[in-house]
Nucleic acid binder design. Structure first.
Length: 559
RNA sequence: GCGCCUGUAGCUCAGCUGGAUAGAGCACCUGGCUUCGAACCAGGUGGCCGGGGGUUCGAAUCCCUCCAGGCGCGCCA
């Protein structure tokens, strides 16, 4: 419709010789007094033509002539307001048929997207801080697929760094039944893993005892490194076994917890495999031969500052071990080879300082950084009433994602996480989510769906067909107009990677439907009226169900 | 100190590429079930859009500055 008016307006502007003078924009009006669509073109032209906008608007108004436009008004200070009539039959047929053009508008044309999200370290369970990325990423994947993109989702398992060594050492201490010192991992989940390992010698070595007795209050890095060395020397071959076991166990738990939250992946990619496959060496060779690296203080550096980063970054530590960044760059290289069209990383917003160096790396490697997009998800602060809960994986003080969704339900948790712009802070109050779960907006939407199903149950079988459509009432026009926006909402959500738009839209549909329902007896005794209204209900239910399914949220028949 | 993000109703947030009286939800007040599900609806209270400048026909939106908050600034990941 927007396009129709635009073409008509362009045609009329051309008659005055005003086309091409201005960027033409048609938008929907907010108030019914202003018609259905409006244009500010007269005001835009006023400056260039040196004429009053009202006069220009009247000149255009006078020659507007299009069968779909019933009336054109001019309003101060120069708006053109269009009143339209519309034949809803094609739209209705499209929804009934679950037409792809309506429910699955193809803007991706099969282009490939590599989407990585969550990728929390396998040093502990996924907690509520990761929940937002999880809900967002999985919904985004659905939306992208629905709009024609060929999406490959991946979880990057960081199983190769220092943190994993610290984790392994922490487990060892748990097995030895020793209180873990500051700087190590702690928590019930470690004890659970520890009891599964009776084969390790539980004798406490002397050097370990000495180390722990002199554990520093601050700057514990050297002590931690000594602890890891100590652990390795005592466990010998068992160290690698234990490490692998721990990572596998925790990763498995993460996978299970996420799956129950509606989050699944095409692949789980292990950082360690990059090292094993000499992927890093390949990467470094490329950078070295192109002169992007240098040595300083016994370490290998990447000249990231030449590509917009604030300073250069270490690739290989002086101890000969690759940094996380080096591995990650190799990973991005691999991802790009796999999906050259587009690559999306979903990060926690606390990693924003990391982005420039990845972009620098990709640019240095000759990849088109325009195809790389990093989406930063602001953290959700967790509250219990007024009390803000401090969280730290290291200290074991966190609420797991599982705990959250077992309390408030997957549907509510997912919706809550997605309903706000992802680049905005989100306050998640557990008390509120628990005590007021009946007021959660997701129930409002589901209730609309359940209500409609209940009407159908009462009526008996109903098969929707366009021939049931009659002259719509004001409320009905509002509702069907809103439904007609489904494709554009989806396209926008997909194009701008903004999942919250879909949530907001579904809330809008539910609002209008509840209003309609309260004003209008659906099951009218007049049979033509009844079928007309049932048809609209049917269309509404289809849109709600489709929309919710993209968020991995259920559309219940009854509640 | 430097960089990124944010400041809109009592609370949590929308506000699309500048547009017509700034919108929802929660909370609070008043109404509505002998009729399809009241997990609902109708109405009301509540705002110097953080402050101050600027750009223009027109600013919550764009620019500058100040104030306040969050995050980042490792040979951690």
């Amino acid at each position: 419709m927007n396009e129709i008016i635009k073409q008509e307006l362009l045609k009329r502007l051309a008659q005055h010789g005003w086309a091409n003078k201005v960027d033409l924009k048609i938008s929907r009006t907010k108030s019914a007094d202003h018609g259905d669509y409006c244009s500010n073109v007269a005001m835009m032209l006023a400056g260039k033509l040196d004429l009053p906008p009202m006069k220009i608007a009247r000149k255009i108004q006078a020659i507007i002539d299009h069968p779909d436009i019933t009336r054109t008004d001019v309003a101060s200070p120069g708006f053109l307001n269009f009143f339209i009539t519309r034949d809803f039959t094609p739209l209705i047929q499209g929804i009934i048929d679950e037409d792809a053009a309506f429910f699955a508008p193809d803007i991706g044309k099969g282009s490939q997207v590599h989407l990585e999200y969550v990728s929390s370290n396998p040093t502990g369970p996924v907690h509520v801080g990761h929940g937002r990325s999880a809900a967002y990423g999985s919904s985004l994947a659905n939306i992208l697929r629905q709009t024609g993109f060929n999406v490959h989702t991946e979880y990057y398992v960081n199983d190769a760094g220092l943190q994993i060594d610290i984790l392994t050492a922490s487990i060892w201490l748990c097995i030895l039944n020793i209180q873990v010192p500051n700087g190590c991992y702690t928590g019930d989940y470690l004890n659970r893993i520890a009891v599964d390992h009776p084969e390790i010698n539980t004798q406490i070595p002397d050097d370990l005892q000495n180390l722990l007795a002199n554990w520093p209050e601050e700057d514990m890095t050297p002590a931690i490194e000594t602890l890891i060395a100590c652990c390795k020397s005592h466990l010998k071959m068992n160290y690698t076994t234990l490490k692998k076991w721990v990572v596998q166990d925790i990763t498995q738990q993460i996978e299970t917890d996420l799956a129950e939250f509606g989050v699944t992946y095409n692949a789980w990619f292990h950082e360690s495999s990059l090292v094993e496959n000499q992927q890093i060496d390949k990467l470094i060779n490329t950078l070295e031969t192109n002169g992007h690296t240098y040595e300083k203080d016994g370490a290998v550096w990447f000249k990231s500052s030449e590509y917009g980063d604030e300073k250069d970054r270490v690739l290989k530590r002086s101890n000969g071990i690759w940094t996380y960044f080096a591995n990650d760059l190799a990973y991005h290289q691999k991802k790009f080879e796999q999906s050259p069209d587009r690559m999306i990383d979903v990060f926690g917003a606390d990693h924003h300082g990391y982005v420039p160096r990845v972009v620098a790396g990709l640019t240095a490697l000759g990849m088109d950084s325009e195809r790389f997009r990093c989406i930063l998800i602001q953290f959700a602060s967790l509250y219990r009433g007024k009390e803000k809960l401090a969280m730290s994986t290291r200290s074991g003080q966190f609420i797991t994602l599982r705990t959250l969704y077992e309390e408030v339900g997957v549907d509510a948790a997912r919706f809550f996480y997605c309903m706000r712009r992802s680049d905005q802070h989100l306050d998640f109050d557990l008390e509120l989510a628990k005590s007021q779960n009946s007021q959660n907006p997701v129930y409002y939407i589901q209730y609309a769906h359940a209500r409609i199903q209940s009407i159908f149950a009462k009526h008996g079988q109903y098969i929707p067909t366009t021939s049931h459509w009659q002259q719509p009432s004001h409320d009905e026009v509002q509702l069907i107009e809103l439904l007609s926006q489904y494709p554009e909402v989806l396209i926008k959500a997909s194009g701008k990677t903004e999942v919250y738009r879909l949530c907001q839209y579904l809330l809008d549909i539910a609002t209008l439907f509840h209003k309609y329902y309260n004003n209008t007896p659906i099951l009218s005794d007049v049979i033509s009226e009844r079928y007309h209204r049932l048809l609209l209900c049917s269309l509404t239910a289809k849109c709600i169900k489709q929309g919710l399914s993209l968020l991995n949220i259920s559309a219940p028949e009854s509640m």
